[in-house]
């Protein structure tokens, strides 16, 4: 099967992201990579739990002083919705509807940017209101590293989505470009799953002490 062959909705295969050997390899390799990423975040979570509220002196802010659930709730909703919209995008990819796929990816990116904006506001707020900086305590280092690693993944994921959208704007869908879209959206889902754990372990557990 030639990667750049032209397709119509009728001839478009069932799982275009895995229709070529290259696509199949990328699909499996990326899942394995996400396995490694899972261990990476597991290590960061373990560190955070071990160092939670470990501060040098009592005047430092603790988890229960810092977190505000309304903002975090908005962020969670933005990111969960963006995961849903990226599913819509992949739905249209599988139906060979390039324009609708690009549209839903664009909505995904906008929602992701919204999340990122909230996170920047949040960090800024902690910095100015509570003097909770990266260097102030072991707790703050662990917090910013865990949530910051996730934030860096969001930035990378957004750049990736934008890059494949721009790159393929004229090329459209074929068996060479389909895996690229698919993997970017898979990465986006992974980022979302990590956030669900951050929401639970950092913010919800932070509220109960």
């Amino acid at each position: 099967m030639e990667a750049e062959e032209k397709y119509t909705p009728q001839t478009w295969p069932e799982s275009p992201e895995r229709a070529t050997l290259e696509g199949k390899n990328k699909f499996l390799g990326f899942w394995l990579f996400l396995g490694g990423e899972t261990v990476l975040f597991a290590s960061l979570f373990a560190t955070y739990i071990a160092l939670k509220d470990k501060v040098p002196s009592p005047e430092h802010a603790l988890a229960k002083d810092l977190y505000e659930l309304p903002l975090v709730f908005v962020m969670t909703m933005l990111l969960l919705t963006s995961s849903l919209t990226s599913v819509y995008a992949m739905y249209h990819m599988k139906n060979f509807n390039f324009k609708k796929m690009q549209l839903w990816l664009l909505i995904t990116v906008i929602l992701g940017l919204g999340f990122l904006g909230c996170e920047i506001y949040e960090f800024n707020h902690y910095y100015h209101e509570y003097n909770h900086t990266f260097t102030s305590s072991a707790f703050s280092s662990a917090f910013y590293t865990l949530v910051g690693f996730h934030g860096a993944h969001v930035i990378f994921g957004l750049s990736w989505l934008v890059l494949v959208m721009v790159r393929n704007a004229k090329r459209g869908l074929n068996l060479y470009t389909a895996p690229k879209f698919y993997l970017a959206s898979l990465y986006w889902h992974f980022i979302d799953v990590v956030w669900v754990f951050i929401f639970t372990v950092v913010y919800l557990m932070g509220m109960v002490g």
């Binding site: 990476l40 290590s43 260097t135 280092s141 590293t145």
Partner: peptide
């Protein structure tokens, strides 16, 4: 390798960017 990556990041952050993961005086371990 990911746990090594994380621990080296923490060492790097401690030494190069003033983090406190392993600095017991600042609550580290």
């Amino acid at each position: 390798f990911p746990p090594l990556t994380v621990s080296i990041f923490m060492l790097m952050f401690d030494r190069l960017f003033g983090a406190n993961f392993f600095n017991v005086a600042a609550g580290g371990n």
